[in-house]
Amino acid sequence: MPEILRISRLTKRFGGLAAVNDVSFSVPEGAIVGLIGPNGAGKTTIFNLVTGVYSLTDGQVEFGGLNIAGLPAYKIADLGITRTFQNIRLFKNLTVFENVLTACHRSASYSILESILRLPRFRQEEKNITRKAEELLSIMGLSDRRDLVANNLPYGMQRRLEIVRALALDPKLLLLDEPAAGMNPDETEQLMRMISKIRDDFKLSILVIEHHMDLIMGVCERIVVLNFGVKLAEGNPEQISNDPKVIEAYLGVAEGEANA
C-alpha cells in the first residue's frame, strides 16, 4: 500500500531538550494509525511538526511524496492535512453551522471584490458551500444543533464538531489528538465507530493520539509507541500489546525482574 505520510528522522529540540528525537514512521494510505505513549512522550509535538505549527529542527516530513517540512501551517492544511486539538479549539462564539461553513472556504474561490459587489460567482459558490456544510452536519448528526453557539454545546459534541470542521476541508489525512479525552465509555465506543466510518466514507487516512487503550486496540491497524521523544516500538495491535518494552514503559518493571 502506498504511503500518504512518511516521517523520517524527525527531531525537535526546545533549547537542550529533544522533545522528539530521530523518529521515523509512516502512515499507509487509507489506514488508521495510532500514536501512543506516556505523557510528555512527544506525541502532540509530532502533530505540531506535521501540521506546521512548530518548525522542525531536523528530519523530513513527506506528504504524498511531497516534502512539506518548513511550509506554513495554512499551506499544509491546503495540501490536505488537518487536525483536531487536545484542548478543543472551536470558533467559540460562532454557531455550529458557522464553524463548519468557515472551514468550507477552500471550496469557494470568489474574490473580495466579487463578495463586496455580490457578483454571480459569489452567489453560486456561497450556495454550494452552504449546502456542503449542511450535508456534513447531517452526516455527523449535528443538524439539530445547527444554530447553537459552539460554546454552549455539550462537551462530546464539541469534540465531534471539531472533527466535522476538519472534514469540511476535504482532508486526505486527519490527525486526531486525544479525541476521546473526557468521554465516558459509552461516548468512547460511539467515537470508535465514528472514526472507522469517517475513514470509509470520506476515503482518508487517520493518525490518532489516544490514551484509551480499548479505542486504540479497537480501531488502529498499526500502532507507533513513543517514549521520551524516541520511537519505542511499531507494529499491529497484537504485537504492541505483547511487546515487553511497551509494557515496561507503561507499567514499569517489577523489582524482582529488574534485578534478575
Partner: peptide, 27 residues
C-alpha cells in the same frame, strides 16, 4: 457584504481562534 462572505468569515475565524484558523487553511 465583506463580512458576510468567506473572506469575512476567515477574519472572524482569526479573531476567534488563530491556531484553529491556521490549520483550517486560513492564511
Amino acid at each position: 457584504n465583506l463580512v458576510r462572505s468567506r473572506h469575512g468569515r476567515n477574519m472572524v475565524a482569526v479573531r476567534e481562534e488563530e491556531l484553529a484558523a491556521q490549520i483550517t487553511g486560513i492564511n
